[in-house]
């Protein structure tokens, strides 16, 4: 059974086709890169997978079931935006996650917060944008989920934090979990992918295991991306 299965997913926003007959199957224990230029449908696909959007046609299933309360328990989503409220402190949002998610590990969260130098008593509203993103990422990575949907997890953080985050992803790797990661910074992360999916204007342009692509095309994923999506 695939952890994520998209069957002929089409999503229209009025006249605009954000996704066009997308077919995708993700196995457990894989780290998959979702790559494409702005507006290619990456965020739409991720939102469909966590139930924030409903497809116009086609079906989507998470661990065999349709998106709902059940799937939200095992899916950890990191949106591109900051969703943190103004009044809580870092320790409050940690408690919040612990309260709502059975598979949230408080210890992991605290470890990571310390490693990145984020004080638990700080008010969320006082954190810089980069730090807010780090907090959100930590909250997601501290969950023992079966499917992680990360929308631009390293875009807004400094290179040192970036390395830490990439390392955390590797360290947390589990054969029973899958990560679908959408990013622009391909060069930094292409080494952690098992496979990649290129999305262009709502359609899958290319997909496959990374080393096979490197062998076949004789270039890096970053290089291939530039070629496929040349302006």
């Amino acid at each position: 059974m695939f952890i994520l299965e998209c069957s002929n997913i089409t999503k229209n926003y009025g006249a605009c086709k954000a996704l066009d007959s997308v077919n995708l199957q993700l196995e457990k224990g894989k780290i998959v890169g979702l790559l494409g230029p702005n507006g290619s449908g990456k965020t739409t696909l991720l939102k469909l997978a966590n139930g924030l959007l409903s497809p116009t046609s086609g079906s989507i299933s998470i661990a065999g079931g349709s998106p709902g309360v059940h799937s939200k328990k095992i899916v950890a989503y990191l949106p591109e935006r900051t969703y943190l409220n103004e009044w809580m402190k870092v320790k409050d949002i940690v408690a919040f996650f612990a309260d709502f998610y059975a598979n949230f590990s408080r210890e992991k969260a605290i470890d990571m917060l310390q490693a990145l130098g984020l004080p638990q008593n700080a008010k969320l509203s006082s954190l810089s944008k980069g730090n807010k993103e780090k907090v959100q990422l930590i909250l997601v990575m501290a969950r023992e989920a079966e499917l992680y949907l990360l929308d631009e997890p390293i875009g807004g953080v400094d290179p040192a934090a970036r390395d830490y985050i990439i390392n955390t992803i590797i360290r947390n790797y589990s054969a029973s979990a899958t990560i679908l990661l959408s990013t622009h910074l391909i060069q930094d992360v292409e080494r952690i992918f098992d496979s990649v999916v290129f999305l262009n204007k709502g359609k899958i342009a290319l997909q496959g295991p990374v080393d096979d692509i490197r062998e076949e095309k004789g270039c890096s994923i970053d290089e291939l991306f530039r070629e496929v999506f040349k302006c």
Partner: peptide
């Protein structure tokens, strides 16, 4: 603010109806 703006990303991905 809590449901229809940015915080909605948090609230609607919680495992609640």
């Amino acid at each position: 603010r809590n449901l229809l703006k940015d915080e909605g990303y948090l609230m609607f991905t919680l495992p609640v109806h």
